[in-house]
Design a protein around this nucleic acid. Structure first.
Lengths: 159, 159
DNA sequence: CTTGACCTTAGATTTAACTCCAAGGTTTAT
DNA sequence: ATAAACCTTGGAGTTAAATCTAAGGTCAAG
């Protein structure tokens, strides 16, 4: 059992945010002490972590509420309805994964290109890395100085 | 070359949003007509698509600005600095991908469980699907009615 | 038995990211 | 040549998601 300050510290959110989530129906403490203090269980903490993860990948609180509402228990939902709902979310998530893979590949290409070798190239921005799908994308320092000695070895200047 | 309304329609954003992005340094039209109309090139459109993709996976405009600023051209950046910056973003993206995979697996498990067969189970919410890493997660309709006949066939009622 | 670190509520304020509005200039179609 | 459909700017308003403030109650330590 955590008091609001403890949970807030443990999950790196403000206590105010937890009260805000409660007011908006995302997360309510499982109990209150006699004095009215909120007491959160491990399962509440679990739910909070879910919310924070979902937020981190771009779901809005409204969408998260919807995700969390996917529960059959004692409801009158047809399981086909639930399945449909889940499958829509699933598609949504898969799209996001595809987009992130696109970013990852582009960033990787950019990272590999930079200081990766002595080859010359002009493709030195994210956007150029994105546009290009060739292996040609190489980045080499043209005019800029290297100030951090520990990295100098890996960066060769074109003569 | 697109006028603001054309680009806005093509990318499904408001013209106001494009002006907003311009004011905040994310995207400026490559030129203006004599009358002051904004004219966007294909490359501007490319940049806009990048912004929108990044937004969709949870980057803030400030982070996107930073991503877009990763350009070496004529700068005094040491390429090690740029590489460091890119690698940090890369880690960030990889974390997001990991989180989304976690969602995807959970949703998939939930989807598979629902209406997947006649077995009984109580694990019918996202949170329960998340907690569980066993194959036991099966969802079957207990008390709810099926109203959509086209789905009835795939849902078996426990007698 | 009080000091300081916690907690409570209600409500005001902030921040990011739009979104809208007013007053007016430009283009295009009839 | 004029109405409809564009565009311009500056500034105000909105929404989501916190974050802060004020006024006070609770609790463990010294």
């Amino acid at each position: 059992m955590y008091r609001i300050g403890e949970l807030s510290k443990a999950c790196d959110v403000k206590a105010d945010t937890l009260r805000f989530y409660e007011k908006h129906g995302l997360l309510s403490p499982s109990m209150r002490t006699e004095a009215g203090y909120r007491m959160y269980t491990e399962s509440d903490a679990e739910r909070l972590r879910f919310i924070l993860r979902a937020k981190a990948v771009g779901f809005t609180l409204a969408e998260i509420t919807e995700l969390l509402s996917i529960e059959l228990d004692k409801s009158n939902w047809a399981c086909a309805d639930v399945k449909g709902m889940v499958d829509i979310k699933l598609e949504h998530v898969e799209e996001k994964i595809a987009e992130l893979n696109y970013f990852r590949e582009s960033l990787q290409r950019l990272s590999d290109a930079c200081c990766g070798g002595p080859e010359s190239a002009e493709h030195c921005s994210i956007l150029e890395a994105l546009e290009s799908n060739s292996a040609e994308v190489k980045c080499e320092n043209h005019t800029h100085q290297h100030t951090q000695t520990e990295y100098k070895a890996s960066c060769k200047v074109k003569g």
